[in-house]
Design a protein around this nucleic acid. Structure first.
Length: 152
DNA sequence: GCCAACGTTGGC
DNA sequence: GCCAACGTTGGC
């Protein structure tokens, strides 16, 4: 099993929105970055655990955990003319973008802020510490456990 | 295939 | 709202 971190803007879709969603489940739509896409398409597997990270807001940080409940398939929004995520260069025969389905697991006891993550020297591989712009990223077991420990 | 211009992300 | 970082686009 592998660990991941997904960013979301809580004003648009928060961990609480996920908890309140039908079946506490959502499609992780709208990822339009190739590196993130490749993780979703190729590497994120059923049963993997995902940190939900709130970005672009007052209290940025890891707030909860979701479980991957369906592996990748083409992101339906890329074919939807009315969607903000529509991509004219994508076709059903040759899709560009992929989604996975995730289901709410829990909130962390307390949010682990970006500052806490950045200042924890034991967290040594998390891409969040360097490349700030990746919206889906792998998390090592060590870094996962460090963040869990900081949430208690 | 290089690289400048441009757009987006995301912390502050 | 600012701006740094970085990804994408498009001319050559």
């Amino acid at each position: 099993m592998n660990y991941w971190l997904f960013k979301t803007e809580p004003d648009a879709f928060s961990i609480d929105d996920l908890k309140k969603a039908p079946l506490q489940t959502t499609l992780w739509e709208g990822v339009r970055n190739y590196q993130a896409r490749n993780f979703m398409r190729d590497d994120i597997k059923l049963g993997d655990l995902v940190f939900i990270y709130h970005s672009s807001c007052k209290h940025v940080g890891v707030v909860g955990i979701a479980t991957v409940t369906k592996e990748s398939y083409p992101d339906p929004t890329q074919f939807d003319l009315n969607s903000d995520y529509y991509d004219a260069k994508a076709t059903p025969d040759n899709p560009r973008w992929f989604v996975v389905e995730v289901t709410y697991k829990c909130h962390l006891n307390k949010r682990v802020s970006l500052k806490d993550i950045k200042t924890n020297e034991a967290i040594n591989e998390l891409a969040l510490k360097k490349a700030g712009r990746l919206s889906v990223m792998p998390v090592t077991q060590n870094d996962w456990e460090q963040i869990i420990a900081m949430s208690n």
